[in-house]
Design a protein around this nucleic acid. Structure first.
Lengths: 191, 191
DNA sequence: ACAATTCTGTACTTATTGGTATATAACCAC
DNA sequence: GTGGTTATATACCAATAAGTACAGAATTGT
């Protein structure tokens, strides 16, 4: 029928994510993305719409990736405590050392001028809500394993706060051991 | 000698902070700051240098304000536990409800494209280090009040992580009660 | 009152950037 | 092959923004 696309949209989204992640929404020019991805601006526009829409696609994709992994990890058999601890520890490589330096793309986006977009705000809100929901659901399901007076809702939020704090402090290249120590300490609250 | 300044530099820095805080470094134009402050661009440049230098001044000023308050609060008489709890609770109005929506200017700056400035990165790093230092010092000083096995250094970092997490999640307008509940839960670690 | 000096307002320059018009290339059905 | 259709590349436009030149205003010492 017609000329086919010369690129894989997902590849371009991955490239765009790298650039947006490194420089932020506002500071990223479309020229940088076209240069990094190798496709031209008209193709970019035809495939994803304008800069705002492209960014939203990239951000949603990022969120979906993390949520998918969280769903799998938090659904594992065994105790809720172990599942949550393993989930938290999975972030250690992403919030410590060199690799963690760029921090969390979602937090970065929440703090960037990109928040002028209502859609971006909503995407981040959905992401945070869904993440906390997953933790809460798991804690509620295994409620019997905890001692009397345990409040799964508050605990879920605390876990969420700690997780966010760890990711937000990733810029400082903390020692993985230090992150582990914090997780261990907080896990003591789940007893 | 010569024509005097027609504005108070601190006032301008306060106005600039509001604009930078709301829109982020990249998305803020100098025209917006001149419009909001009422002074012209040449005056702005003469007083503070270019946009980067102005932003750094604003950020340092913000950091100094919070650090000063932390020094006062954490040095109060009584137990280390009470001092830290009070310090944490002092942030509740700034990380919940409408007022908290804009979040923490430091975290926002750490996630903005403004990090391209080495100076900005250093300022944030100094701020975080100093804050943790204050908490750690207080915990160490009152070490005897805690039970055996208590590690003031790890606990200080955990407090720091929680504080950062609360501020980073402020965009979602959490209920102050919820924030309070998290603080209470975490304070249980200091026993 | 006047000169020396510093500040301020207007207008401008230059560079960048988001977005698009247009012409051409690549593909498929027939 | 040819026509219809969709993608790509080049070049461009309009808007915005950082930074500055320059002329004029405000102050103080003499």
């Amino acid at each position: 029928m017609a000329r086919p696309r010369s690129f894989d949209p997902d590849d371009v989204l991955d490239v765009a994510r790298e650039v947006f992640w490194r420089k932020g929404f506002q500071a990223t020019s479309l020229d940088e993305i076209t240069a990094a991805s190798g496709i031209g601006k008209p193709s970019l526009y035809a495939a994803f719409g304008d800069k705002d829409a492209l960014f939203l696609r990239v951000l949603d994709r990022y969120h979906d990736g993390i949520l998918g992994w969280a769903e799998r990890t938090l659904a594992q058999p065994g105790s809720a405590r172990d599942a949550i601890q393993q989930w938290l520890m999975g972030f250690i490589p992403y919030c410590s050392g060199e690799k963690g330096q760029r921090g969390c793309f979602s937090i970065k986006s929440a703090s960037d001028g990109s928040l002028h977009q209502v859609e971006v705000r909503k995407s981040i809100e959905r992401y945070n809500r869904r993440l906390e929901e997953l933790i809460r659901a798991r804690l509620r399901a295994d409620r019997a394993q905890f001692k009397k007076g345990f409040d799964p809702d508050i605990s879920a939020h605390t876990i969420m706060v700690v997780h966010t704090g760890l990711m937000a402090l990733a810029h400082q290249l903390p020692d993985p051991k230090q992150v582990k120590a914090v997780i261990d300490q907080v896990m003591a609250l789940l007893a």
